[in-house]
Nucleic acid binder design. Structure first.
Lengths: 112, 112
DNA sequence: ATCGAAAATCGACGATAATCGATAAATCAA
DNA sequence: TTGATTTATCGATTATCGTCGATTTTCGAT
């Protein structure tokens, strides 16, 4: 019982979808995500900083956003934080068709 | 020859991807798109305005953005403009997996 | 306890984007 | 031509976002 209404998607759902897409609506975040996806192993913030050429605070900021949506996972060891890609979250990311069809918003942003 | 490099996605590609996702990174645009997708027939700007409850100039602005990415198609009749969903563009929209895998950016934003 | 290293947070700035009201442009009818 | 209707554009305001430098926090080592 989804898209048989004639009105637009309710505002709340639309905002949830939008927050998903916002996570990938920035070139720097896409670079960070692609970086973590190519190297399959976890990377420290420092490694990501040097590999991406972006400031340390900026990288930390973006990693936080990516973690909130569940795109990346954190594990802390000593003073370091290691981030890795969250494959299960990548696969549950909504498609444009989902939005357009009015499919229910994916379970929870934080998968796993 | 895609994701076997160790560095991040080149900036240009990352920006192209980001521009795609930016198109759906706004709740109002998602509402407009979902509205056009549910009613399969074209809608005039005025109809979209009353159905969405957003200002006329705002709707016109968002429709322009959606048209630039190819999500919607325009046809003008008299003083009216009728917008409809572009199914072929919806299906070619990149997935999160595409971004993460470093797949090539979809052909052209303006499909059809 | 003190120091150094790593990451997160804070404060500020500039740029971008969303929204609105008003105006302009285009079209058709009388 | 004049007027009415519909949409696009313009100008301004406001809010959001990305970025940076500096500071703070956390943790391990000495």
């Amino acid at each position: 019982m989804n898209g048989e209404e004639k009105g637009p998607l309710p505002r709340a759902e639309a905002e949830e979808y939008a927050s998903w897409f916002k996570a990938l609506a920035d070139a720097t975040r896409i670079q960070i995500v692609s970086l973590l996806a190519r190297r399959r192993e976890p990377m420290s913030v420092g490694e990501i900083v040097t590999a991406s050429g972006v400031g340390q605070s900026t990288v930390s900021h973006h990693l936080k956003i990516l973690a909130e949506v569940g795109f990346v996972l954190v594990e802390r060891q000593g003073t370091s934080a290691f981030y890795r890609i969250n494959d299960s979250c990548v696969s549950c990311f909504p498609t444009a068709a989902d939005v357009v069809m009015g499919n229910p918003v994916p379970a929870a942003p934080v998968c796993e």
